[in-house]
Design a protein around this nucleic acid. Structure first.
Length: 463
RNA sequence: GACCCUAUCGUCUAGAGGCCUAGGACAAUACCCUUUCACGGUAUGAACCCGGGUUCGAAUCCCGGUGGGGUCGCCA
């Protein structure tokens, strides 16, 4: 049996971190088993689905480089097929027409809630042997309901949570087609998973409660029931549920915030899945290792600090030219006149050991593109008369350096230190502030070398 | 409320009855490195939710409690 998995988002917003992990796991499972990964857009909620959201999801998948093998399929384009299946079910008696209005349903629900009962459809239009149905009211378009079994249990061996059994008495006859004839989610999913030959449904665990309904419909259709793996949810950094109002952001925000795509994927892979003590691994490695047995059943809290660490590891290993491109792009976005020169690439090499994000790297390289002045406060703190005097001395020595190389520059600094009878930081710190606008940097002689004679002497003027 | 899921350091997790004096990673703390800040290195502190069983033996299996979460739509 060839593995076929799918990622089936509804296009009502951006691709968020939870969706991204679901997509990653589905993708990885298909890749692991040489199977097929399908992208399906569940857009039957016409009121909330937008083309922008479809694009946002595709953009997110592209950025993460989770390529699909089939699709994207759109449910709105499969209406004829759904309607065909509904007609078959009506004919077969596994579905029936229900004329209960929304108002009646609301009243029923309110009544049941008042009695502290589980709200459910009471089956008033459900055909039963020997039962007389009321006459269909005029002027009301019926919905189609699935005739759910009333006895027995629905059970499946969830690949993450283990065996789950639900009594059919807990399930009511849910609506598979609205009064306007459009099919509903739980029905479309079933038809799609069936038609698309999905073997493994890997999705969020908010779907656990839909699963028995879907299995019952699948059974009514005589379809093979796929394997299910329900992933627990991802909580925010504060342990709270992620929502539009609270903490949920697009995966593209991580790009904007300076995270490398492979770092985000590595982090997500480890959030709810493990392979022994392994923390850092490539996607190739992940695909070889990925299995459903090591997925955590409980919810996981997102941890930005760990993501930062992983990102820093990937930045350190990343190709300088690639980093340079990212830095220039980000600097330009800030309105900084950055150019991808060999000098700037050397600065990238100098700084990439110390950046958690590409944005931090870009900020650090800002003074290598244009002169950055320290705030008045920082200047006042570091430019004492004594400090200025050392900078004047140092500038004189640097001007006389024949070969602009770190060892020679270091020598010039040391001579200045000796002549003024001060410690190294008394020169190095004001020098950093004068050159870079801030008191911290990598080894100052390296910085001097990369910055170049011209800019160094220019920035050291006026002391 | 009903049903379902879930529970190991602050966080992500290892753990399939003896390998557990509970391991790793992030974070924290200390020290080392150092020309500042980082990086890196070394070390330290830090957890099996509670109560009953089962067993020679339980973090691991069972039951109950408690906490957390999800679902109860002509949304997906």
């Amino acid at each position: 049996m060839t593995v076929r998995t799918r990622f089936a988002p509804s296009p009502t917003g951006f691709l968020h971190i939870g969706g991204a992990r679901t997509a990653l796991f589905s993708w990885a499972y298909a890749r692991r088993h040489g199977g097929t990964f399908i992208l399906r857009i569940e857009d039957t909620d016409v009121a909330r689905s937008t083309p922008e959201a479809v694009q946002a999801i595709i953009d997110g998948m592209n950025w993460l480089q989770l390529g699909h093998d089939e699709g994207p399929f759109y449910q709105m384009q499969r209406m004829d097929r759904y309607k065909e299946v509904i007609q078959q079910m009506l004919a077969a008696g596994t579905a029936y027409l229900c004329y209960t209005s929304k108002e009646e349903l609301d009243a029923l629900r309110a009544e049941q809630e008042a009695k502290k009962e589980k709200p459910r459809y009471d089956g008033r239009w459900r055909p039963e042997a020997g039962k007389t149905l009321p006459a269909p009211p005029v002027g009301i378009e019926p919905v189609v309901r699935f005739k759910n079994p009333t006895t027995g249990v629905v059970a499946w061996d969830d690949q993450v949570k283990g065996r789950i059994e639900i009594s059919n008495t807990e399930l009511d006859d849910f609506i598979i087609a609205r009064a306007d004839g459009t099919p509903t989610y739980n029905f479309c999913v079933v038809v799609d998973d069936w038609d698309m030959g999905i073997t493994h449904v890997i999705r969020g665990d908010d779907h656990v409660n839909n699963t028995p309904r879907q299995i019952n419909v699948l059974a009514a259709l005589g379809a093979t029931v796929p394997q299910y793996a329900h992933l627990s949810m991802i909580l925010g950094d504060d342990g709270q549920k992620l929502s539009k109002r609270h903490g949920a952001v697009s995966v593209m925000q991580y790009d904007e915030d300076g995270y490398l795509q492979e770092a985000v994927l590595n982090y997500l892979a480890r959030l709810g899945w493990s392979h022994g003590d392994d923390e850092l691994f490539s996607m190739e490695q992940f695909v070889q290792w990925f299995d459903l047995d090591h997925i955590t059943a409980s919810a996981a809290q997102f941890n930005t600090e760990k993501l930062n660490w992983i990102n820093a590891q990937y930045i350190k290993q990343a190709d300088n030219a690639r980093l340079l491109g990212e830095v220039v792009k980000r600097l330009k976005a800030q309105g900084v006149n950055a150019v991808a020169t060999p000098e700037l690439e050397r600065a990238v090499a100098l700084y990439k050991e110390r950046a958690n994000t590409l944005n931090e790297l870009a900020d650090a390289l800002h003074p290598f593109c244009v002169t950055v002045h320290a705030s008045a406060e920082v200047q006042a703190q570091h430019f004492s008369d004594a400090a200025k005097a050392t900078l004047v001395t140092l500038r004189g020595k640097l001007a006389g350096v024949s070969e602009w190389l770190a060892p020679n520059l270091s020598a010039a600094i040391k001579e200045t230190v000796t002549e003024h009878g001060v410690k190294m930081p008394a020169v190095a710190i004001p020098l950093r502030v004068a050159l870079l606008g801030q008191p911290q940097s990598p080894s100052i002689d390296q910085v001097l070398e990369v910055l170049g004679r011209e800019r160094v002497l220019e920035r050291l003027q006026g002391f």
